[in-house]
Structures are given as structure tokens and as C-alpha cells.
Amino acid sequence: MTEQKRANPAPLGLSGFALTTLVLSVYNAGLLSQGESAVLGLAAFYGGLAQLLAGILEWRAGNTFGYVAFFTYGAFWEWYFLTSMLGGAAAQGIGLVLIAFGIFTLVMWFGTFRSNLGLFMTFLLLWITFFLLGAGLMVNSTALVHAGGYVGILTAIAAWYTGLAAVVAEALGVSPPLGRPLMK
């Protein structure tokens, strides 16, 4: 009896993360100033629910790193959705949460040292994004928030490339370059 082939959940998780991060980062960078609520549906469903599902599927596949990463960032997007919908959260409180996620992401980044360069860059850029945004909110600095938005855009590009490279590899039998691991 052979085991049925299962889809790789990582491209779904990375794509949900990337698209939601890109849209919010455009606003954080100050490139758009109206319609920011457009990110809320993405945060609830594509950034949130899709990543939670990807995390559960990574758990079923026995991938602890993928499980922890996707489930945590899915929960982050659900937190963002609820915090935005309920309102009333002080900027400093949100900044503190972002810095805490930056610390978590920094630790997770160490887990990418034996992975490909695409994942390494995604986590590197993400912890920088969280720290810039968090610090910007803590000290009320538009410049830091804008810088965090721009780094967030780069984060989204790195995540999308990394996730979609797996889709292209499977669909076309061509492996886009993802770079070698830093450590063996």
C-alpha cells in the first residue's frame, strides 16, 4: 500500500503571509494613505486563516519549524484583524507587541541557517520590519514606521519568491534558484 502524495502547505502559508504583508506595508511606508481597511479581510482570511491551516498541515507533515512559523504568523494576523476591528489599542501597546514578534522572529531566523537563502532573507527582513515598526510606534516616529513599511515590502517579495518557487518547481519541473544554506 502506498501513501497518497500530499501538497506542500508552505507555498500557501508564504503566499498568504506575503500578500497580506505587502498590502499593509504599502500603507506603513506611506505610499497610500486611504483605504487601509482593505487589509483587514486579508488579515482575517489569507494572512490569518490560510496560514493557520498551513501550520496545521505542516504539523501533520512533522515539520516543527513550518508549524510554529505559520501558526504563529497566522495568529498574528488574526490578532491584527481583531485589534483593528475593536479599536482602542494604544500605539505604544501595539509597538510592544510588534517588538515581541520581532524577538520571536529573530529567534526563528536562526532556524533558517540550514535552509535556503530565500527563507533566510524572508525571516531576516521580517525581524527588521517588526523592530522598525514597533520602535516607530513606541517613540511616535513616522520615519521609522515608513522605514518598516519599505522593509516590509521587501519581506513580502522575499516570501512570495520563496513560496512560489516551490509551486513553479512542482508545476513545471524547473527549480528557480533559492540559494544555498548558510550552514550544512
Rank of each mutant, 00 (worst) to 15 (best):
E3I: 14
L19A: 11
T64S: 13
L96W: 01
V23H: 00
H146D: 12
K5M: 12
Y27I: 02
S37E: 15
A156S: 15
F101I: 06
G48I: 02
A89L: 13
A166S: 14
Y67V: 04
L126I: 06
Q92M: 11
L106Q: 09
G30Y: 05
F76S: 05
L49Y: 04
H146M: 13
A75V: 11
A147L: 08
M1I: 11
L144T: 05
G93T: 15
N28I: 08
G62F: 05
A50W: 07
T129F: 06
Y46R: 04
L132Y: 03
A165Y: 03
V107A: 14
G66F: 07
L12T: 10
P177Y: 13
H146Q: 15
R60K: 15
F123C: 07
V145D: 07
I157W: 09
M85E: 11
L96I: 13
N140T: 14
G13F: 00
G111H: 01
F130R: 01
L86E: 11
L144N: 03
A158N: 02
A100D: 03
A18W: 04
L144C: 02
F113M: 15
A165Q: 04
T21C: 14
R180I: 08
G30D: 08
T72L: 09
Y80D: 00
A158L: 09
Q51F: 09
A7Q: 10
F113G: 06
P11L: 00
I94H: 03
F113W: 12
G74A: 06
A69K: 03
A135W: 15
S33D: 13
